[in-house]
């Protein structure tokens, strides 16, 4: 579903991604973890076609970036730490707007479905301005899956959420992933990530330093695995 070969991303003279290889199969839920400044957000922005690769090849859902960006965008949903919503519009209006941008047919029924799924049907006609951070984030997910994408990218979806809101978000994330979609997520919340994802990749110094599944943790957990990887990196 996602194939990345020798990806390099430079900002002026600074190189953020240094020949990164990465691939995700259909239906996998991959968590991308790593220290701040390792290039996680930059990488997701490249997958989302918001930034251009400096070198290397990137393909998402069978289309190459940046040449076939429009085809990728049609099959891709993105949730970032900013909700990408208009606060002076209601939830239904926000979805109606994005539905127009994606040229969706049968929009009203689709909006009802999505609002039902994220549990905001009863507040559909309230301004997003009046929503709590957790509700905004759920609506952001609704916005991202409105056009039923094959691939979903989550960039730190838990930022700024309290315990209750995070737990509710977990449910929505599970529902989204359960439909056979491919998911890539970055997060600092290792405990939650461990429950959700099926594979864990560590991004460090512009490359994938290690990759593991639940089986590979043995007696430890994601946190011990992550710490080991970072220490090995330092030792080199």
């Amino acid at each position: 579903m996602i194939k990345v070969r020798k990806l390099v991303k430079r900002f002026g003279l600074k190189t953020v991604l240094k020949g990164m290889d990465f691939s995700v199969e259909d239906g996998e839920f991959v968590a991308l973890i790593g220290p701040n400044g390792a290039g996680k957000t930059t990488f997701l922005r490249i997958l989302a076609s918001l930034a251009r690769p400096s070198m290397g090849t990137v393909s998402v859902a069978g289309y190459n970036l940046p040449q076939e960006a429009a085809d990728v965008r049609r099959r891709l949903g993105v949730v970032s730490h900013q909700p990408l919503l208009y606060v002076d519009l209601t939830a239904a209006e926000n979805l109606k707007f994005y539905g127009g941008m994606y040229n969706l047919q049968n929009l009203p029924t689709r909006i009802d479905e999505v609002l039902e799924m994220i549990g905001l049907s009863n507040r559909r006609n309230d301004l997003v301005r009046t929503y709590s951070r957790g509700m905004q984030q759920r609506l952001a997910i609704g916005r991202a899956v409105l056009h039923d994408p094959n691939v979903i990218l989550f960039d730190e979806p838990y930022t700024g959420l309290d315990q209750d809101a995070s737990a509710m978000l977990d449910d929505v994330l599970r529902t989204v992933a359960a439909r056979g979609r491919t998911v890539v997520m970055t997060s600092h919340d290792l405990a939650r990530t461990e429950d959700l994802a099926t594979r864990f990749d560590v991004l460090s110094r512009g490359k994938i330093a290690a990759s593991a599944t639940h089986k590979d943790f043995g007696s430890g957990n994601l946190l011990t695995f992550y710490k080991n990887v970072l220490e090995e990196g330092k030792a080199q």
């Binding site: 965008r73 990408l84 919503l85 040229n103």
Partner: peptide, 18 residues
């Protein structure tokens, strides 16, 4: 500024249109 402040510009750019 409304587009830029809340990152909505990204939301617009993610849409499959020119």
């Amino acid at each position: 500024a409304i587009e830029k402040d809340r990152g909505c510009l990204d939301g617009l750019l993610l849409a499959p249109v020119d």
